[in-house]
Write a protein that binds this DNA or RNA. Structure first.
Lengths: 222, 222
DNA sequence: CTCTAGCCTCTAACATGCCAGCTGGGAAGA
DNA sequence: TCTTCCCAGCTGGCATGTTAGAGGCTAGAG
């Protein structure tokens, strides 16, 4: 939690990204750099650097000599990000079944226990955090730094649609079962089952998104 | 002023990236920003922006208040990038078997023909370009823009080690056969075989790298 | 000869001023 | 009233001056 040695540019980057992901800044909304400078007490330089980095991540689009805007959510993009995420996470699940350390398995077991508690308490926010953690435990305990980065980059985009989706309460019980299936396959060191369980899990997420996209087409750009 | 299609920062970025990928700037070498400013006739600002973007791609590392350096090649990183690439390309191969357009298949067939010519002519440089093209045809004709970007990002890093590897001449014939296997599986619309053929192909690349890393450990940082 | 402390240099980070291009709105003419 | 064209006011891109901190080098002490 100590972001002691962060540069000003990093700080602005964090603030902006947070605002975009939570939806405080809506897709298509212009970014007023000068207002940001004043509000955060910095010059235009770190703000420009931060916006530039976000443009690299495709979270904002810069129209030269015109303005910078929060990028719109494209159905095609989401679909493809889900494709990439599925491909990666399935391999990671298989890899986990193959060589996840004892500590990693313990961490997963602990996460599962807390997930069950969150389901009992019908605490969707808490459950979501644990959901993210479940997947991050796999990458971090397998030492897959870059995979984690790639997935985090994808998640950043998918997070925006998740806010819109706001999964129905019953959904978390399904997710819990999915995670349980992946976990037991990993415990059994069954790579094939781990891969397919993860595939099933993410197929559910994808299906959920497709349904939502059909129901609320006005929220997406393409 | 003259006609300007891209910003100066983009230009500097391109030049620097090219220099890093070709090895003109070696891993660990410091980047003299002022010399760059003078050589390209720009101020420090676009150079800083370019270096910052490359740092985001992990092609350079910035040590605050000290200097910017071309990032060293880490064995672990390469291993993981190959892992990610394999996971993605296998799914892409399966997807291609499922729904690659007629034009995509024609493009692949054309590529294969030119690959055969390059093998006959023992033109390794030409063959490498066609190798890259083979994989890019899949992403572009499937409309997988972001996957292509992710893979290009990975390839940028892997390109550096490929320069070192400089595959033995006999290797290109093996690669040609690998591509042929993937291609025929796609033609047959056999997703399972396409996936496994691609897996075999990339396993060969991975194996080649591991062998090289054992032979020349001094070239890597970890 | 070795180790250490302090200065000196070189770097990235940041502030600020200027420039050029795009847009939108208003004025002028049909 | 509608259309066209010009200008003013935004915006991002760029140049350049300033600041602060990390590291190396040297000199002095043990």
């Amino acid at each position: 939690m100590g972001e002691r040695v962060s540069s000003k540019a990093d700080h602005v980057y964090g603030e902006l990204k947070e605002a975009i992901l939570t939806g405080a800044l809506e897709p298509g909304e212009p970014i007023d750099k000068l207002a940001l400078c004043e509000r955060l007490g910095v010059s235009r330089f770190p703000v420009s650097a931060a916006v530039s980095r976000l443009a690299f991540e495709r979270l904002v689009v810069i129209e030269p000599q015109h303005g910078s805007f929060v990028s719109r959510i494209s159905v095609e993009d989401v679909r493809e990000r889900l494709f990439i995420r599925t491909a990666l996470e399935c391999e990671i699940a298989a890899e986990a079944a193959l060589r996840l350390s004892r500590e990693g398995r313990a961490a997963l077991a602990g996460n599962m226990a807390r997930e069950r508690e969150a389901v009992e308490a019908v605490d969707r926010q808490k459950f979501y955090e644990l959901d993210v953690e479940f997947h991050q435990i796999l990458t971090s305990h397998l030492g897959l730094r870059h995979s984690g980065e790639v997935l985090d980059g994808l998640r950043a985009h998918l997070e925006r649609v998740r806010r819109l989706l706001m999964a129905p309460a019953g959904r978390i019980r399904v997710t819990l079962n999915d995670h349980q299936a992946v976990f037991s396959a990993i415990e059994a060191e069954d790579t094939v089952r781990a891969r397919s369980a993860m595939a099933d899990h993410l197929a559910g997420t994808t299906e959920q998104f497709e349904t939502f996209a059909r129901e609320r087409p006005e929220l997406f750009s393409a």
